[in-house]
Structure formats: C-alpha cells, structure tokens
C-alpha cells in the first residue's frame, strides 16, 4: 500500500512508460510466436514486427459501422483489465515504474481484473449482435469459469503456504534461489497453475473461444479499425501481465529487466508449444478438462501447503 500512497507525477510517468513498453513487448512476443509457429509448421512466417504494422494500420483506420455504447467500450475494458493487472504486480522487484502497486490483498484484485477484461469483452461482443460473437461469449465465459477454479486453488495453496495475500510477499518468500520457487516448493499447485495458464492464454487446445474456423475469431468478429487495434494492444498487455503474474507466483519474480523478459517469454512459450501439438477441444471438453486434473492438482496443492505449514510449525 506504501507505493500507492507515494504517488507523484514522475512515478506515474514511469508507470505509463512501462505500460507502453509492456504493450510493445507483448506485440513483439506475438510476432515471435507467429515466426516460431511458422518454423514448427515448415513455413517462413511473417516478420516479427508484423504485429506492430498491423496495430499501427488499424489505429489509422476509421469505421462507419455503428453499434451500441458497450461495443465501443469493450476494447477499453479489455485494455484497462490488462493494464490493471500489469500495474498491480511487480515486474521487476524494487525498480521504479516496474515494481507495481503491490499491497496485501492484491491477489484478489488481480483475479477481479482478469474477469473485468473478459466481461467487458463479452458485453461488447453481445452488443455487436453477431451470432458468432454471442456463441463465443458463452464459450468464453464457461471456459473462464472453469480455468479460474484450478487457478484460484493454486493461489489459495500459495497463500496458505506463505501466509500473505500480497504478490510482493509471495515473491519475497521465494528469494534465495531456484529451489525456493513455488513451482518446486509446491509442484502440485505449480501444475494446477501451469494447466490453468493454458486456458488463460487461449491457444490450442483451449482456443474454442476464438475458433477461427467455426465462429471466425469469436468475440471480436465485428471489430475493426481503431477498436480492433485497441483490442490487439489489450491482448498484448494481457498476455504479458498474465505471464508476469505466473512468473511472480511460481518462478520467484524477477530482479532485472532481462530476467523478467526471459521468464515472461518462457512462460508465454509454454502455451504456444502446447498449442503446436494439440488440436482444439470442444467447449464442454475444455470445461471438463479444467474441472478434472487441474482442479485435483489444485486441491492436492492446498493439502500439500497445509501439510508443509504443519510440519514447519
């Protein structure tokens, strides 16, 4: 809470710069992913800077399509959700502009922001009136509810083990080397987190929400121009923020910008590589998957955390 109270213009400026950097890094990762996927598939692929060109082009376009107010606000909600998570969590511990506004209880606020972005998107898609977008919203909300359960269980396991609701506190508890990372200290919660992270990132096999071949692109199917550009930016920072969150919870956080960039990239690529070797699940198959193994791992992670706490006392 201390960081929130010590706000000044300079600090906010650094935070704004950091947000722009995160969006740029998210877009770069998007470009690298396209290149890596192309190589896996024996293609050349687009240049890594293609997402920058796409976003720039979209921001310079105007639309004459008129929908309701929520349609225009949805990309804003989406982007704000991503920025909210990004600013809450420490990207690089102790570095101005990247240290985040972590306080006790921020874990709960992060979960709220994750829902906030997706719900905004859902409202916008519903307002678009496109039947494909509405199907995608129903799929997206059911998938989100199902992967949030194991993710929340993994978080509860960490909170029980560390004894704090602060992401900063969880990072501090992992200081001292790789052996202290919660991915290894509580591998069961780590697995639950890793599996639910696949659902968050929406790559195969959990990309039924977007499903380009069934309901072309899903919720954003009616979006174009600046709104789509904003949505792409939101997706870029959302991806970085979620990867950084996972880094903080299970991989010991980061103490320098290169370390943070590498860890975020590795976490991001986990979802990409899984996506390269699996086809897409149906909506109910995704839900069933998250409610089975990841949930069991999450519950076992809580039991392990309680046991370790008991043994330590």
């Amino acid at each position: 809470m201390q960081a929130v109270l010590n706000l000044d213009i300079g600090y906010l400026g650094l935070c704004a710069l950091s947000v722009i950097g995160a969006i740029a890094y998210g877009l770069l990762i998007g470009g690298i992913i396209r290149k890596v996927m192309a190589r896996i598939q024996s293609r050349i692929g687009p240049p890594v800077w293609q997402p920058y060109l796409d976003v720039a082009k979209l921001f310079f376009q105007r639309t004459s399509i008129r929908h309701g107010m929520m349609f225009y606000l949805a990309p804003v909600f989406r982007t704000v959700g991503g920025i909210g998570i990004y600013l809450l969590i420490p990207i690089v511990a102790g570095m101005p502009g990247l240290a985040g506004f972590s306080f006790n209880g921020d874990v709960l606020l992060v979960i709220y922001f994750m829902f906030f972005g997706c719900l905004g998107m859902a409202l916008g898609a519903g307002e678009s009136g496109h039947p494909h977008a509405i199907i995608a919203v129903s799929r997206g909300l059911s998938q989100m509810s199902s992967y949030e359960l194991p993710f929340s269980l993994a978080l509860i396991a960490l909170v029980a083990q560390v004894g704090t609701f602060s992401i900063g506190g969880i990072i501090e508890a992992q200081a001292g080397g790789i052996g202290n990372w919660y991915l290894f200290m509580n591998p069961l919660a780590g697995i639950a987190g890793l599996l639910s992270f696949l659902g968050m990132q929406m790559y195969s096999p959990f990309n039924i929400v977007l499903a380009p071949q069934e309901i072309p692109i899903g919720p954003p199917t009616e979006y174009n121009s600046t709104f789509l550009g904003l949505m792409m930016s939101g997706r870029a920072i959302f991806g970085v923020a979620k990867s950084a969150l996972f880094m903080n919870l299970f991989l010991g956080g980061a103490t320098s910008i290169p370390e943070a960039m590498i860890k975020i990239f590795v976490v991001y690529m986990w979802a990409v590589f899984v996506g390269a070797v699996f086809p897409r699940f149906r909506a109910e198959q995704s839900v069933r998957f998250f409610l089975r193994w990841p949930t069991w791992f999450g519950l076992a992670g809580i039991a392990l955390a309680m046991l370790m706490k008991h043994l330590a006392s």
Partner: peptide
C-alpha cells in the same frame, strides 16, 4: 481437417 479442428501443425505438414 487439421485446419478445421485447430491442429495447425498437421495442416501444414499434411500439405508439405
């Protein structure tokens, strides 16, 4: 078929 069920790797490898 790979393309339709979201299995891009099979899609591209099949065509290769």
């Amino acid at each position: 078929a790979g393309h339709i069920i979201g299995y891009w790797t099979v899609y591209m490898w099949g065509w290769k």
